[in-house]
Amino acid sequence: MRYLLKRLVTTVLVLGGVSILTFSMTALTPGDPAVAALVEQTGHQPSEETVVAFREQHGLNEPFPVRYADWAIDTLGGDLGQSYSSEQTVASMIGQRLPNTVELAAASMVIAIAIAVPAGVASAVNPGGRVDYAAQFGALVGVSMPNFWLGYLLIIVAALWLDLFPVAGSGGLDHLVLPAVTLGSGMSAVIARLVRTTMLDVLDAPYIRTARSKGLRERIVVYKHALRNALVPVVTIAGLQLSYVLNGAVVVEAVFQRPGLGTLLVDAIFARDYPVIQGVTLLVGVIFVLTNLAVDLTYRYLDPRIDRRGEPA
């Protein structure tokens, strides 16, 4: 309980840091952000009056701390402000795109785990064997492959040559397959390597020998007694892979031209639509921090030893 409290306090602190970082990013703009935004919108150098009016409209005349405070208070109330380049509020733009990205993230996570766990286990059960060698090699190729290229490779083969799936866009399940495979296979490589190492560790543990000494079938020893223990670190890392999903989503959404948070962010960056950039960045940071918290709590649930000790080892 004490740990939980401490953990929550740190989480809030980090979230505060994330929000400051996000907000102050605008300050990096070379020159005047208002001018830069207007140039992107209109395509020519704005007049003095337009700039003043724009500043007034978006409250850019206040000093930085005041603007941050305003923004932070609005944000806490769920108001992320008004987009510079469209009539919509940032919140509603995000609301439209978020489901697509969540769908992609979930599907690729499922694919990643479905590939990674059996592959990692097969590797660990016979380390140094053919299967292990192949799986490790495959995993290394997987982590090394840029997912934007993998995406095009899949488009060329599965969409253009074999005509199995649509090339791009979003919609039904068939639009989801190629992006999810692209994102999932890279992730599965990381997870498979982790499953392998933790399984190797766990298979050496005394309780595995106990399980064998009971006359248990090897399959049950591996998938019940060993995997359940290996799952503890695997869940942690799989959760932290969310970072990979979000990184990857930006690129994969661009490859498959899926409307999602990633494409929203990239478009906003090119349009210098600062409220949208801030909103999406903040959301990504918040999602990531909260996932870490969730992972931590799951970890505690999976490992009964931690729960009552208060502090993780």
């Binding site: 994330v18 970082l21 990013m25 605008t26 969310l242 950039i277 990504v284 940071g285 990531f288």
Partner: peptide, 23 residues
């Protein structure tokens, strides 16, 4: 805390935003 905050972001997303705002 600064390190935590930085690690709290998926690297490419953060780099994307920074690079994008810088131009």
């Amino acid at each position: 805390r600064l390190v935590d905050t930085l690690l709290a972001f998926p690297g490419i997303v953060l780099a994307l935003v920074i690079a994008g705002i810088l131009g």
